Computed example of a mutant assay.
Amino acid sequence: MKLLSISSGKVMPLFGNHHPDYKSVPSGIRKTSISNLENATKIQIGNLGIQGDEQADLSVHGGLEKAIYVYPAEHYAFWNELLTRETKKPIALQYGSLGENFTIEGLLETEVFVGDKLVIGELQFAVTKLREPCFKFNAALGYKGAAKAMVQSGYSGWYLRVLKTGMVSAGEKIQLIPGPRDTSIAQQNRNLLAKRNQKDLWD
């Protein structure tokens, strides 16, 4: 298990026709890798996440309980294939393109439970919940079905609370310390899928 990339972004206008009421909304979903295997810069992580990273809507992203968004690199092939097919042009997403702060390998939603701890270098984190995509995710990827595809696939990623702050760089090994193991991120996603299907709630 390894941290492949650390990504950060500023709030900026996000344009698209992916919501009936907004042509442009402020969003911090567009992230750029600032530490990766080619350039393993040490990055400061505080209680609210990566220093300098921004979120536009703190009711759904950011804060202590959603300080870091983690996404498995293993799912990138799924998104590249889906978007290439749907947009009719070759897509090769860069790490950070799904809005994540940490792109990792070797750990998936089925293996991660709420309350588990992740130790990365000298830092410690607690797994809090899955990521629930919205219309901004559709706009960022340029595909109206992106949020629906994320929930249906179960490729949601998850949020972390920061337990121990400090500096970390890409390339660090990840250690998982199991918590109560009552609810996995995959189970949270199945619950969300059932709820959205019942309400037909696709933003």
Rank of each mutant, 00 (worst) to 15 (best):
K31R: 14
S59G: 06
L58M: 09
V60F: 07
N39R: 11
G28Q: 08
E54A: 11
V70C: 10
I34M: 09
S8V: 10
G63F: 00
P13A: 03
S27C: 13
S33N: 04
K66V: 10
L64K: 11
V25Q: 09
K31G: 00
N17S: 07
T41A: 05
G52P: 03
I34S: 13
A67C: 12
A73H: 12
I29D: 05
K10N: 13
V25K: 12
I34R: 04
L58K: 14
I6Y: 03
G49S: 07
L14I: 07
K23S: 09
A40N: 12
A73I: 06
G9D: 08
K66M: 14
S35T: 10
Q55N: 13
G46M: 05
I68K: 01
G28K: 01
V11M: 14
N39E: 15
K42Y: 14
G52K: 08
G62D: 09
A56D: 14
G49V: 00
K42D: 12
S8G: 06
Y69I: 05
S8M: 05
S33R: 00
Y22G: 10
L64W: 03
N47C: 09
P26W: 01
S8R: 14
Y22P: 08
G62L: 02
I68F: 01
K42M: 12
Q51T: 09
S5T: 12
A73R: 10
I45G: 14
S27V: 10
L58Y: 10
S59L: 06
I50V: 15
Y69W: 00
H18V: 09
V11A: 12
K31F: 00
I68C: 09
K10F: 03
L58E: 11
I43R: 01
G9F: 00
L64S: 13
R30T: 02
L48F: 13
I45T: 14
I68Q: 04
K10W: 02
E65L: 13
S24V: 15
G16V: 03
I6K: 03
E54L: 06
I45W: 01
G49C: 01
A56W: 03
Y71W: 02
K31V: 01
T41S: 11
N39Q: 09
G63R: 01
K42W: 02
L37F: 01
G52A: 12
K66L: 08
S8I: 00
V25R: 12
L64I: 14
S33I: 01
E38V: 02
G46I: 02
L14Y: 12
L37N: 13
E54Y: 07
V25D: 10
Y22E: 13
S24N: 09
G16R: 04
V11W: 04
K42I: 03
L58I: 09
S35A: 04
A40C: 04
A67P: 10
Y71P: 09
I68R: 02
V11R: 05
P20H: 15
I50C: 04
G49K: 01
G62H: 03
G62Y: 02
L37S: 11
G49R: 00
P26C: 07
V60E: 09
Y71G: 05
Q55H: 15
G16M: 05
G62P: 08
T32F: 03
N47Q: 11
I29C: 02
V25G: 11
L58W: 10
S7P: 06
Q51S: 11
I45L: 07
L58C: 07
K23D: 08
R30P: 07
K42P: 05
I29H: 01
L48D: 13
R30M: 08
G28D: 10
K10Q: 12
G16S: 14
